[in-house]
Design a protein around this nucleic acid. Structure first.
Length: 458
RNA sequence: GCCCUGGUAGUGUAGUGGCCGAUCAUGCGGCCCUGUCGAGGCCGCGACCCGGAUUCAAAUUCCGGCCGGGGCGCCA
Protein backbone atom coordinates (compact mmCIF):
# COMPACT_ATOMS: atom_id res chain seq x y z
CA UNK A 1 0.00 0.00 0.00
CA UNK A 2 1.25 3.47 -0.84
CA UNK A 3 1.72 5.50 2.27
CA UNK A 4 -0.75 8.32 2.73
CA UNK A 5 -3.27 6.91 0.31
CA UNK A 6 -6.72 6.12 1.56
CA UNK A 7 -7.76 2.49 1.48
CA UNK A 8 -10.10 2.11 -1.49
CA UNK A 9 -13.65 1.13 -0.68
CA UNK A 10 -14.33 -2.27 -2.19
CA UNK A 11 -17.95 -2.87 -2.98
CA UNK A 12 -19.61 -6.07 -1.81
CA UNK A 13 -16.83 -6.87 0.63
CA UNK A 14 -18.32 -6.45 4.09
CA UNK A 15 -16.23 -4.82 6.76
CA UNK A 16 -15.17 -7.63 9.06
CA UNK A 17 -17.11 -7.54 12.27
CA UNK A 18 -16.72 -9.28 15.60
CA UNK A 19 -20.35 -8.64 16.38
CA UNK A 20 -22.54 -11.66 16.30
CA UNK A 21 -25.38 -9.69 17.83
CA UNK A 22 -26.82 -7.16 15.36
CA UNK A 23 -26.61 -3.81 17.19
CA UNK A 24 -28.67 -2.13 14.50
CA UNK A 25 -31.64 -4.11 15.83
CA UNK A 26 -31.16 -2.73 19.31
CA UNK A 27 -34.40 -1.75 21.01
CA UNK A 28 -34.59 1.05 23.52
CA UNK A 29 -35.14 -0.18 27.04
CA UNK A 30 -37.74 2.51 27.81
CA UNK A 31 -39.85 1.18 24.95
CA UNK A 32 -40.11 -2.27 26.47
CA UNK A 33 -42.67 -3.37 28.99
CA UNK A 34 -44.55 -6.39 30.36
CA UNK A 35 -46.65 -6.49 27.19
CA UNK A 36 -43.58 -7.50 25.22
CA UNK A 37 -43.58 -10.89 26.97
CA UNK A 38 -42.11 -13.45 24.60
CA UNK A 39 -40.58 -10.92 22.21
CA UNK A 40 -37.08 -11.57 20.96
CA UNK A 41 -34.95 -8.45 21.35
CA UNK A 42 -31.47 -7.05 21.20
CA UNK A 43 -30.54 -4.69 24.01
CA UNK A 44 -27.21 -3.00 24.54
CA UNK A 45 -25.77 -0.51 26.95
CA UNK A 46 -23.60 -0.12 30.00
CA UNK A 47 -23.48 -2.73 32.75
CA UNK A 48 -24.37 -0.58 35.71
CA UNK A 49 -24.49 -3.24 38.38
CA UNK A 50 -24.33 -6.99 38.78
CA UNK A 51 -26.08 -8.71 41.65
CA UNK A 52 -24.98 -12.31 41.84
CA UNK A 53 -27.08 -14.27 44.32
CA UNK A 54 -25.52 -17.62 43.64
CA UNK A 55 -28.04 -19.65 41.70
CA UNK A 56 -29.39 -16.58 39.96
CA UNK A 57 -27.84 -13.27 38.96
CA UNK A 58 -29.26 -9.94 37.88
CA UNK A 59 -27.59 -7.39 35.65
CA UNK A 60 -28.72 -3.81 35.50
CA UNK A 61 -28.12 -2.57 31.97
CA UNK A 62 -28.23 1.17 31.42
CA UNK A 63 -29.18 2.94 28.24
CA UNK A 64 -29.14 6.70 28.50
CA UNK A 65 -31.05 7.54 31.63
CA UNK A 66 -32.97 4.27 31.84
CA UNK A 67 -32.02 0.84 33.07
CA UNK A 68 -33.45 -2.59 32.37
CA UNK A 69 -32.92 -5.87 34.13
CA UNK A 70 -31.23 -8.89 32.59
CA UNK A 71 -32.02 -12.07 34.49
CA UNK A 72 -29.54 -14.96 34.62
CA UNK A 73 -30.95 -18.12 36.21
CA UNK A 74 -27.88 -20.32 36.23
CA UNK A 75 -28.44 -23.66 34.63
CA UNK A 76 -31.14 -22.22 32.39
CA UNK A 77 -28.88 -19.73 30.65
CA UNK A 78 -25.77 -20.83 28.81
CA UNK A 79 -22.74 -20.75 31.09
CA UNK A 80 -20.61 -18.58 28.78
CA UNK A 81 -23.36 -16.02 28.58
CA UNK A 82 -23.67 -15.90 32.36
CA UNK A 83 -19.90 -15.52 32.78
CA UNK A 84 -19.65 -12.81 30.13
CA UNK A 85 -22.12 -10.64 32.00
CA UNK A 86 -21.44 -11.52 35.61
CA UNK A 87 -17.67 -11.23 35.35
CA UNK A 88 -17.67 -7.99 33.37
CA UNK A 89 -16.48 -4.93 35.21
CA UNK A 90 -19.03 -2.24 35.97
CA UNK A 91 -19.57 0.30 33.20
CA UNK A 92 -18.48 -2.12 30.48
CA UNK A 93 -20.54 -2.02 27.28
CA UNK A 94 -22.43 -5.16 26.44
CA UNK A 95 -25.00 -6.39 23.95
CA UNK A 96 -27.59 -9.03 24.73
CA UNK A 97 -29.89 -10.99 22.46
CA UNK A 98 -32.71 -12.60 24.37
CA UNK A 99 -36.37 -12.86 25.20
CA UNK A 100 -38.52 -10.44 27.14
CA UNK A 101 -40.26 -11.99 30.12
CA UNK A 102 -43.05 -10.49 32.09
CA UNK A 103 -42.23 -10.58 35.79
CA UNK A 104 -43.89 -9.06 38.82
CA UNK A 105 -40.61 -9.10 40.67
CA UNK A 106 -38.58 -7.26 38.05
CA UNK A 107 -38.35 -3.46 38.04
CA UNK A 108 -40.68 -2.17 35.35
CA UNK A 109 -42.51 -5.50 35.31
CA UNK A 110 -40.23 -7.16 32.77
CA UNK A 111 -36.74 -8.52 32.31
CA UNK A 112 -34.65 -9.96 29.51
CA UNK A 113 -33.61 -13.60 29.53
CA UNK A 114 -30.52 -13.77 27.32
CA UNK A 115 -29.71 -16.33 24.65
CA UNK A 116 -26.42 -14.68 23.91
CA UNK A 117 -24.31 -11.88 25.35
CA UNK A 118 -21.29 -10.08 24.05
CA UNK A 119 -18.88 -7.69 25.75
CA UNK A 120 -18.34 -4.86 23.29
CA UNK A 121 -15.87 -2.94 25.41
CA UNK A 122 -14.66 -3.82 28.85
CA UNK A 123 -14.28 -1.01 31.37
CA UNK A 124 -11.00 -1.00 33.24
CA UNK A 125 -10.98 -1.08 36.99
CA UNK A 126 -10.92 0.83 39.25
CA UNK A 127 -13.11 3.49 37.70
CA UNK A 128 -11.78 7.02 38.23
CA UNK A 129 -15.16 7.78 39.74
CA UNK A 130 -18.28 5.77 40.38
CA UNK A 131 -21.40 6.33 38.31
CA UNK A 132 -23.79 4.83 40.85
CA UNK A 133 -21.62 4.78 43.96
CA UNK A 134 -23.20 5.73 47.22
CA UNK A 135 -20.57 8.40 47.77
CA UNK A 136 -20.51 11.93 46.39
CA UNK A 137 -17.84 13.05 43.97
CA UNK A 138 -16.19 16.47 43.97
CA UNK A 139 -17.02 18.74 41.06
CA UNK A 140 -13.34 18.72 40.14
CA UNK A 141 -13.17 14.92 39.92
CA UNK A 142 -16.41 14.91 37.95
CA UNK A 143 -15.05 17.42 35.45
CA UNK A 144 -11.83 15.43 35.10
CA UNK A 145 -13.99 12.45 34.15
CA UNK A 146 -16.90 14.14 32.43
CA UNK A 147 -17.65 11.14 30.18
CA UNK A 148 -18.39 9.09 33.29
CA UNK A 149 -20.15 11.94 35.04
CA UNK A 150 -22.54 12.40 32.13
CA UNK A 151 -23.57 8.76 32.45
CA UNK A 152 -25.49 9.85 35.53
CA UNK A 153 -29.11 10.55 34.63
CA UNK A 154 -29.25 13.74 36.68
CA UNK A 155 -26.20 15.13 34.89
CA UNK A 156 -27.63 14.20 31.51
CA UNK A 157 -30.75 16.04 32.57
CA UNK A 158 -28.83 19.29 33.05
CA UNK A 159 -27.58 19.17 29.49
CA UNK A 160 -30.95 18.18 28.13
CA UNK A 161 -32.35 21.27 29.84
CA UNK A 162 -29.55 23.39 28.46
CA UNK A 163 -30.22 22.10 24.95
CA UNK A 164 -33.92 22.82 25.40
CA UNK A 165 -33.16 26.33 26.64
CA UNK A 166 -31.14 27.02 23.51
CA UNK A 167 -33.77 25.45 21.28
CA UNK A 168 -36.63 27.34 22.91
CA UNK A 169 -34.80 30.64 22.67
CA UNK A 170 -33.71 30.11 19.09
CA UNK A 171 -37.19 29.08 18.04
CA UNK A 172 -38.77 32.17 19.54
CA UNK A 173 -36.20 34.51 18.01
CA UNK A 174 -36.74 32.95 14.60
CA UNK A 175 -40.50 33.35 14.96
CA UNK A 176 -39.91 37.00 15.80
CA UNK A 177 -38.01 37.46 12.56
CA UNK A 178 -34.48 37.43 13.94
CA UNK A 179 -31.72 36.26 11.61
CA UNK A 180 -29.11 34.00 13.14
CA UNK A 181 -25.58 34.94 12.21
CA UNK A 182 -22.04 34.04 13.13
CA UNK A 183 -19.24 36.44 13.88
CA UNK A 184 -15.54 35.64 14.00
CA UNK A 185 -14.04 34.50 17.27
CA UNK A 186 -10.57 35.44 16.13
CA UNK A 187 -10.31 39.17 15.84
CA UNK A 188 -7.56 41.57 14.88
CA UNK A 189 -8.00 44.33 17.42
CA UNK A 190 -8.57 44.34 21.14
CA UNK A 191 -11.35 46.74 20.47
CA UNK A 192 -14.11 46.59 22.99
CA UNK A 193 -12.10 47.53 26.02
CA UNK A 194 -12.99 46.65 29.56
CA UNK A 195 -12.09 43.05 30.26
CA UNK A 196 -8.79 41.37 29.50
CA UNK A 197 -8.73 39.29 26.36
CA UNK A 198 -6.71 36.32 25.17
CA UNK A 199 -3.94 36.75 22.65
CA UNK A 200 -3.39 34.21 19.93
CA UNK A 201 -0.74 33.93 17.27
CA UNK A 202 -2.32 34.47 13.86
CA UNK A 203 0.44 33.70 11.36
CA UNK A 204 2.77 36.69 11.63
CA UNK A 205 0.30 38.84 13.54
CA UNK A 206 -1.07 38.94 17.06
CA UNK A 207 -4.79 38.31 17.15
CA UNK A 208 -7.32 38.03 19.96
CA UNK A 209 -10.19 35.80 20.98
CA UNK A 210 -13.35 37.85 20.93
CA UNK A 211 -14.88 38.81 24.23
CA UNK A 212 -18.25 39.22 22.54
CA UNK A 213 -19.74 39.75 19.07
CA UNK A 214 -20.72 43.26 20.17
CA UNK A 215 -19.09 45.22 17.40
CA UNK A 216 -20.10 42.75 14.68
CA UNK A 217 -23.74 42.59 15.58
CA UNK A 218 -23.81 46.37 15.61
CA UNK A 219 -22.32 46.39 12.13
CA UNK A 220 -25.19 44.16 11.04
CA UNK A 221 -27.56 46.94 12.05
CA UNK A 222 -26.30 48.93 9.09
CA UNK A 223 -27.26 46.20 6.62
CA UNK A 224 -31.03 45.95 6.67
CA UNK A 225 -30.99 42.77 8.72
CA UNK A 226 -32.87 44.62 11.41
CA UNK A 227 -32.99 41.85 13.98
CA UNK A 228 -30.06 39.53 14.44
CA UNK A 229 -28.86 37.07 17.00
CA UNK A 230 -25.93 34.81 17.54
CA UNK A 231 -25.41 31.95 19.96
CA UNK A 232 -22.09 33.49 20.83
CA UNK A 233 -18.93 32.45 22.60
CA UNK A 234 -17.33 34.92 25.00
CA UNK A 235 -13.63 34.54 25.76
CA UNK A 236 -12.47 36.53 28.74
CA UNK A 237 -9.01 36.45 30.26
CA UNK A 238 -10.06 37.53 33.72
CA UNK A 239 -8.33 35.47 36.37
CA UNK A 240 -11.28 35.27 38.66
CA UNK A 241 -12.18 32.17 40.57
CA UNK A 242 -15.82 32.17 41.56
CA UNK A 243 -18.79 29.90 41.22
CA UNK A 244 -20.37 32.13 38.59
CA UNK A 245 -17.54 32.94 36.18
CA UNK A 246 -16.04 31.09 33.23
CA UNK A 247 -13.29 32.12 30.86
CA UNK A 248 -15.23 30.70 27.93
CA UNK A 249 -18.98 31.19 28.09
CA UNK A 250 -21.98 31.24 25.78
CA UNK A 251 -24.77 33.70 25.24
CA UNK A 252 -27.79 34.65 23.23
CA UNK A 253 -26.45 37.81 21.70
CA UNK A 254 -29.19 39.91 20.11
CA UNK A 255 -29.37 43.26 18.38
CA UNK A 256 -32.40 45.16 17.06
CA UNK A 257 -32.54 48.19 14.75
CA UNK A 258 -35.05 51.04 14.54
CA UNK A 259 -35.89 51.19 18.21
CA UNK A 260 -37.37 54.18 20.02
CA UNK A 261 -35.32 53.54 23.12
CA UNK A 262 -34.00 50.69 25.24
CA UNK A 263 -37.49 49.66 26.28
CA UNK A 264 -37.95 48.03 22.87
CA UNK A 265 -34.95 45.86 23.70
CA UNK A 266 -36.32 45.03 27.13
CA UNK A 267 -39.43 43.72 25.44
CA UNK A 268 -37.36 41.31 23.34
CA UNK A 269 -35.36 40.17 26.35
CA UNK A 270 -38.25 39.52 28.69
CA UNK A 271 -40.11 37.61 26.03
CA UNK A 272 -37.02 35.62 25.16
CA UNK A 273 -36.61 34.64 28.80
CA UNK A 274 -40.27 33.74 28.92
CA UNK A 275 -39.88 31.61 25.78
CA UNK A 276 -36.82 29.84 27.17
CA UNK A 277 -38.34 29.06 30.55
CA UNK A 278 -41.68 27.96 29.18
CA UNK A 279 -40.03 25.75 26.55
CA UNK A 280 -37.97 24.07 29.25
CA UNK A 281 -40.98 23.78 31.51
CA UNK A 282 -43.06 22.15 28.77
CA UNK A 283 -40.42 19.90 27.23
CA UNK A 284 -38.27 18.80 30.13
CA UNK A 285 -40.77 17.26 32.51
CA UNK A 286 -38.75 14.10 33.06
CA UNK A 287 -35.45 15.94 33.37
CA UNK A 288 -36.84 18.39 35.91
CA UNK A 289 -38.28 15.47 37.86
CA UNK A 290 -34.84 13.80 37.87
CA UNK A 291 -33.32 17.04 39.11
CA UNK A 292 -36.14 17.46 41.59
CA UNK A 293 -36.58 21.02 40.52
CA UNK A 294 -39.32 23.19 39.10
CA UNK A 295 -38.76 25.99 36.63
CA UNK A 296 -40.80 29.10 37.18
CA UNK A 297 -42.05 30.75 34.05
CA UNK A 298 -42.01 34.46 34.85
CA UNK A 299 -44.88 36.79 33.97
CA UNK A 300 -44.14 39.54 31.49
CA UNK A 301 -43.43 42.40 31.57
CA UNK A 302 -40.65 42.12 34.14
CA UNK A 303 -40.46 44.86 36.74
CA UNK A 304 -38.13 47.74 35.91
CA UNK A 305 -36.04 48.97 38.79
CA UNK A 306 -33.93 52.01 38.09
CA UNK A 307 -30.34 52.16 39.24
CA UNK A 308 -31.28 54.95 41.64
CA UNK A 309 -34.07 52.84 43.13
CA UNK A 310 -31.74 49.87 43.43
CA UNK A 311 -29.24 51.95 45.42
CA UNK A 312 -31.99 53.39 47.55
CA UNK A 313 -33.69 50.07 48.33
CA UNK A 314 -30.53 48.19 49.18
CA UNK A 315 -28.79 50.97 51.15
CA UNK A 316 -29.78 49.51 54.52
CA UNK A 317 -28.94 45.94 53.58
CA UNK A 318 -25.35 46.36 52.51
CA UNK A 319 -22.30 46.82 54.67
CA UNK A 320 -20.50 48.91 52.14
CA UNK A 321 -22.66 51.48 50.43
CA UNK A 322 -22.38 51.78 46.66
CA UNK A 323 -21.24 55.25 45.63
CA UNK A 324 -23.40 56.78 42.93
CA UNK A 325 -21.78 56.10 39.59
CA UNK A 326 -20.21 52.82 40.57
CA UNK A 327 -21.56 49.53 39.37
CA UNK A 328 -23.65 47.64 41.91
CA UNK A 329 -21.50 45.54 44.21
CA UNK A 330 -22.11 41.82 44.41
CA UNK A 331 -23.51 42.40 47.88
CA UNK A 332 -25.99 44.97 46.56
CA UNK A 333 -26.99 42.68 43.69
CA UNK A 334 -27.85 39.88 46.10
CA UNK A 335 -29.67 42.29 48.40
CA UNK A 336 -31.75 43.50 45.48
CA UNK A 337 -32.38 39.89 44.47
CA UNK A 338 -33.81 39.22 47.92
CA UNK A 339 -35.98 42.32 47.82
CA UNK A 340 -37.38 41.39 44.42
CA UNK A 341 -37.93 37.80 45.54
CA UNK A 342 -40.02 39.09 48.43
CA UNK A 343 -42.08 41.07 45.96
CA UNK A 344 -42.61 37.86 44.01
CA UNK A 345 -40.21 38.51 41.13
CA UNK A 346 -37.35 36.22 40.22
CA UNK A 347 -36.50 38.24 37.14
CA UNK A 348 -36.23 42.03 37.06
CA UNK A 349 -34.50 44.73 35.07
CA UNK A 350 -32.14 47.28 36.50
CA UNK A 351 -32.33 50.28 34.20
CA UNK A 352 -30.90 53.77 33.74
CA UNK A 353 -27.38 53.05 34.87
CA UNK A 354 -24.96 55.93 35.28
CA UNK A 355 -23.11 56.56 32.05
CA UNK A 356 -19.75 56.36 33.77
CA UNK A 357 -20.01 52.68 34.64
CA UNK A 358 -21.12 51.54 31.20
CA UNK A 359 -19.11 51.09 27.98
CA UNK A 360 -18.51 53.74 25.34
CA UNK A 361 -21.06 52.27 22.93
CA UNK A 362 -23.99 52.70 25.36
CA UNK A 363 -26.33 55.55 24.55
CA UNK A 364 -26.12 58.30 27.16
CA UNK A 365 -29.30 59.90 28.46
CA UNK A 366 -29.18 63.41 29.80
CA UNK A 367 -26.06 64.50 31.62
CA UNK A 368 -25.22 61.46 33.69
CA UNK A 369 -27.39 58.49 32.80
CA UNK A 370 -27.23 55.84 30.15
CA UNK A 371 -29.84 53.74 28.37
CA UNK A 372 -28.21 50.64 29.75
CA UNK A 373 -29.74 47.84 31.72
CA UNK A 374 -29.03 44.53 33.36
CA UNK A 375 -31.35 41.60 33.80
CA UNK A 376 -31.16 40.20 37.30
CA UNK A 377 -32.37 36.77 38.40
CA UNK A 378 -32.40 36.27 42.16
CA UNK A 379 -29.34 38.46 42.57
CA UNK A 380 -27.42 37.08 39.60
CA UNK A 381 -26.67 39.25 36.61
CA UNK A 382 -27.78 37.16 33.65
CA UNK A 383 -27.82 39.82 30.95
CA UNK A 384 -26.58 43.25 30.24
CA UNK A 385 -27.53 45.43 27.34
CA UNK A 386 -28.29 48.91 26.13
CA UNK A 387 -29.47 51.15 23.42
CA UNK A 388 -26.27 51.91 21.51
CA UNK A 389 -24.78 55.11 20.30
CA UNK A 390 -25.49 55.35 16.56
CA UNK A 391 -24.10 58.84 15.96
CA UNK A 392 -20.52 58.52 14.67
CA UNK A 393 -19.33 61.84 16.08
CA UNK A 394 -20.57 61.01 19.56
CA UNK A 395 -19.02 57.57 19.25
CA UNK A 396 -15.62 59.03 18.29
CA UNK A 397 -15.83 61.45 21.14
CA UNK A 398 -16.62 58.66 23.62
CA UNK A 399 -13.81 56.46 22.34
CA UNK A 400 -11.38 59.33 22.86
CA UNK A 401 -12.78 60.02 26.30
CA UNK A 402 -12.01 56.49 27.38
CA UNK A 403 -8.44 57.07 26.33
CA UNK A 404 -8.43 54.90 23.22
CA UNK A 405 -7.27 55.69 19.73
CA UNK A 406 -10.08 56.04 17.18
CA UNK A 407 -7.64 54.65 14.58
CA UNK A 408 -8.04 51.24 16.19
CA UNK A 409 -11.80 51.46 15.73
CA UNK A 410 -12.00 52.43 12.07
CA UNK A 411 -13.44 49.07 10.96
CA UNK A 412 -16.10 49.44 13.59
CA UNK A 413 -16.81 53.12 12.98
CA UNK A 414 -17.12 52.88 9.21
CA UNK A 415 -20.73 51.60 9.10
CA UNK A 416 -21.82 54.41 11.38
CA UNK A 417 -20.84 56.98 8.78
CA UNK A 418 -22.88 55.47 5.95
CA UNK A 419 -26.35 55.12 7.39
CA UNK A 420 -26.77 53.53 10.82
CA UNK A 421 -30.22 53.37 12.37
CA UNK A 422 -30.85 53.67 16.12
CA UNK A 423 -30.44 50.24 17.66
CA UNK A 424 -29.81 48.28 20.83
CA UNK A 425 -29.26 44.81 22.11
CA UNK A 426 -28.07 42.52 24.84
CA UNK A 427 -26.16 39.37 25.71
CA UNK A 428 -27.99 36.74 27.74
CA UNK A 429 -25.60 34.30 29.39
CA UNK A 430 -26.63 30.71 28.69
CA UNK A 431 -24.67 29.12 31.52
CA UNK A 432 -25.93 31.76 33.89
CA UNK A 433 -29.58 31.27 33.02
CA UNK A 434 -29.29 27.46 33.06
CA UNK A 435 -27.54 27.69 36.41
CA UNK A 436 -30.27 29.93 37.75
CA UNK A 437 -33.14 27.92 36.28
CA UNK A 438 -31.86 24.71 37.87
CA UNK A 439 -30.42 26.31 40.98
CA UNK A 440 -26.97 24.83 40.31
CA UNK A 441 -24.38 25.92 42.83
CA UNK A 442 -21.50 26.13 40.41
CA UNK A 443 -21.62 27.50 36.87
CA UNK A 444 -19.15 24.78 35.83
CA UNK A 445 -22.01 22.32 36.17
CA UNK A 446 -23.81 24.11 33.34
CA UNK A 447 -21.03 23.51 30.78
CA UNK A 448 -19.72 20.13 29.73
CA UNK A 449 -16.09 21.15 29.56
CA UNK A 450 -15.61 24.39 31.46
CA UNK A 451 -12.64 26.64 30.89
CA UNK A 452 -11.70 28.44 34.05
CA UNK A 453 -8.60 29.98 35.57
CA UNK A 454 -6.86 26.63 36.06
CA UNK A 455 -8.75 24.28 33.82
CA UNK A 456 -7.72 23.93 30.21
CA UNK A 457 -8.51 20.23 29.81
CA UNK A 458 -10.22 17.98 29.15
C1' G B 1 -5.15 41.79 40.45
C1' C B 2 -6.24 41.29 45.96
C1' C B 3 -7.91 38.08 50.03
C1' C B 4 -9.50 33.43 52.46
C1' U B 5 -9.41 28.16 52.45
C1' G B 6 -8.11 23.04 51.33
C1' G B 7 -4.92 18.59 49.35
C1' U B 8 -5.29 11.40 53.68
C1' A B 9 -6.81 4.33 49.62
C1' G B 10 -10.09 4.38 42.85
C1' U B 11 -14.13 7.72 45.19
C1' G B 12 -15.91 10.57 49.51
C1' U B 13 -14.13 11.31 54.45
C1' A B 14 -12.19 11.03 60.21
C1' G B 15 -7.85 12.46 62.24
C1' U B 16 -4.56 19.72 64.69
C1' G B 17 2.71 16.92 67.68
C1' G B 18 3.64 10.67 70.45
C1' C B 19 -2.61 6.85 71.61
C1' C B 20 -1.66 6.47 63.55
C1' G B 21 2.42 -0.10 61.44
C1' A B 22 -4.17 6.02 60.14
C1' U B 23 -11.12 6.04 60.95
C1' C B 24 -15.53 5.07 58.44
C1' A B 25 -18.20 4.52 54.05
C1' U B 26 -18.06 3.36 49.06
C1' G B 27 -15.17 0.62 45.57
C1' C B 28 -12.08 -3.56 44.28
C1' G B 29 -10.66 -9.09 45.00
C1' G B 30 -12.12 -13.99 47.08
C1' C B 31 -15.84 -17.27 49.21
C1' C B 32 -21.30 -18.39 50.50
C1' C B 33 -26.28 -17.63 48.81
C1' U B 34 -32.24 -19.07 43.05
C1' G B 35 -35.70 -13.11 43.03
C1' U B 36 -32.24 -9.17 43.69
C1' C B 37 -33.60 -3.97 42.83
C1' G B 38 -28.90 1.13 48.24
C1' A B 39 -29.17 -7.15 48.02
C1' G B 40 -27.06 -9.73 52.35
C1' G B 41 -23.08 -12.50 55.11
C1' C B 42 -17.76 -13.70 55.97
C1' C B 43 -12.53 -12.71 54.69
C1' G B 44 -9.09 -9.64 52.31
C1' C B 45 -6.84 -5.17 49.29
C1' G B 46 -5.86 -0.17 49.05
C1' A B 47 -3.88 6.37 51.11
C1' C B 48 -1.11 10.96 54.42
C1' C B 49 0.44 16.00 46.91
C1' C B 50 6.00 17.23 46.17
C1' G B 51 10.62 19.41 48.24
C1' G B 52 13.00 21.60 52.29
C1' A B 53 12.94 23.08 57.67
C1' U B 54 11.74 22.69 63.15
C1' U B 55 11.49 18.58 66.79
C1' C B 56 13.69 13.10 70.63
C1' A B 57 9.05 12.55 67.67
C1' A B 58 5.33 15.49 61.88
C1' A B 59 -0.66 13.29 58.29
C1' U B 60 -0.64 17.16 62.12
C1' U B 61 3.91 23.06 62.87
C1' C B 62 6.82 26.48 59.42
C1' C B 63 8.73 27.85 54.27
C1' G B 64 8.57 27.05 48.97
C1' G B 65 6.26 24.56 44.84
C1' C B 66 2.25 22.05 42.34
C1' C B 67 -3.04 21.21 42.26
C1' G B 68 -8.18 22.26 44.02
C1' G B 69 -12.42 25.28 46.32
C1' G B 70 -14.39 30.10 47.48
C1' G B 71 -14.90 35.63 48.22
C1' C B 72 -13.94 40.61 46.29
C1' G B 73 -12.99 43.46 42.02
C1' C B 74 -14.84 42.78 37.11
C1' C B 75 -18.49 40.58 34.42
C1' A B 76 -22.58 36.80 31.12
Amino acid sequence: MVAGRPVPFIKDVPIPSAMSIPLSERVAIPELGPDDDGREVVVAGWIQEVRDLGGIAFVELRQGTETGQIVLPKGKVDEDTVDTLVEANRESVAAIAGTVQESDEAPGGFEVLPDEAELLNEAQTPLPMGVVDRVDTDVDTRLENRFLDVRKPEVQAIFAVRAAAVEGGRQWLQEEGFTEFTSPNIIGAASEGGTDIFEVQYFEETAYLSQSPQLYKQMMMATGLDKVFEIAKYFRAESHNTRRHLNESSAFDCEVAFIDDEDDVLWVLENLVHAITSFVDENCTEELELLDHEVTVPDTPFPRVTYDEALDWTADDVEEEVAWGEDLSTEAEYALGDIMEEKGHEYYFITKYPDECKPFYAQPEGEELSRSFDLGKSGMEVTSGAQRVHDPDLLRQRIEEMGADTEDFEDYLKPFTYGMPPHGGFGLGIERIVMEMLDLHNIREAVLFPRDRDRLRP
